[in-house]
Design a binder for these strands. Structure first.
Lengths: 150, 150
DNA sequence: ATAGAACCTCAAGTTATATTGAGGTAAAGT
DNA sequence: ACTTTACCTCAATATAACTTGAGGTTCTAT
């Protein structure tokens, strides 16, 4: 196996995902591969980073669709540079800050509700719509779907 | 319509959800109703608060299953007191703090990655498994599914 | 009395993010 | 050469949290 021709099994192991997930990401246009003589997928080493970035973004709570949009802004013709990745990261950092702020807001509301016992429709800040971050916010956050919350 | 016999349409309007959602919650055991002569649902006024609490918990990122578990701990035979609700709220507050801490951790990682440009498998704290909160954590956070993240 | 709004049930559809399985081919190890 | 492991495609299934639709009934207002 040449250095620059990584197999799907190797990729999966290195990235901690299933082979089927890589198929799926490819189908969604998040990653690319070419085929060898026997129709098997081969990946460029750059794809390792790409997958890692996808996983990092998912932890932040970005959907695959939006991750795809972001990745589409990367150059096609060359290996992305440090600066290319930094741009993505800084956008997602803002996203993350927004989400943190939203949850902190919610926490403060909940805390004051614990204090006053006001969990009612009319008084509680939690479900009154000053709760702007919820409606102007930026979509679903999925932390880790594998982990249940017993 | 008697004061204590709220219709499903009224409930839906008051709570900002669809009628079908109330049917769904009932089927899942999250809320209860009785029927009138013509087989239509009637709700106790307490159910308004119950639905609000469900919605608040969802904003925190608690799944319906877990919300159900929490609600099951409320007394069946009387209207829950301030203290009953406070107990739920304080549990969810911990949950919320855990989630905030997780995202802050991620933000710190991302920030340092912006600084060093290290988004690579081996060095970046984002996808290295010191990232314990991700794997020991407490499940998905869904903020607001209605809002897309363009 | 009658129209229209509100309600009923039950089955199927929706979205996101994958996973699983069947049936078959290719590559690698001995 | 032969076996085992890895890979291929395509379709179906899984989960959460709902929504939609069809076909029919009940309430409410005039």
């Amino acid at each position: 196996m040449k250095k620059e021709e990584l197999t799907v099994g190797y990729m999966a192991k290195r990235c901690g995902v299933n082979v089927s997930t890589l198929h799926f990401y490819e189908e969604k246009g998040l990653i690319k591969s070419w085929r060898n003589q026997g129709n098997q997928r081969r990946y460029h080493r750059d794809t390792l980073r790409r997958i890692s970035v996808i996983k990092a973004a998912q932890k932040i709570g970005i959907t695959l669709d939006n991750i795809k949009h972001a990745l589409d802004s990367l150059p096609e013709n060359r290996t992305p540079t440090k600066e290319d990745w930094q741009l993505l990261a800084s956008n997602w950092n803002e996203e993350l800050n927004t989400r943190i702020a939203y949850l902190e807001n919610l926490r403060d509301s909940l805390t004051s509700c614990i204090g006053c016992g006001c969990l009612s429709l009319t008084q509680c800040p939690i479900y009154n719509d000053q709760d702007k971050l919820a409606t102007e916010g930026t979509g679903p956050i999925l932390l880790d779907r594998k982990v249940s919350m017993k």
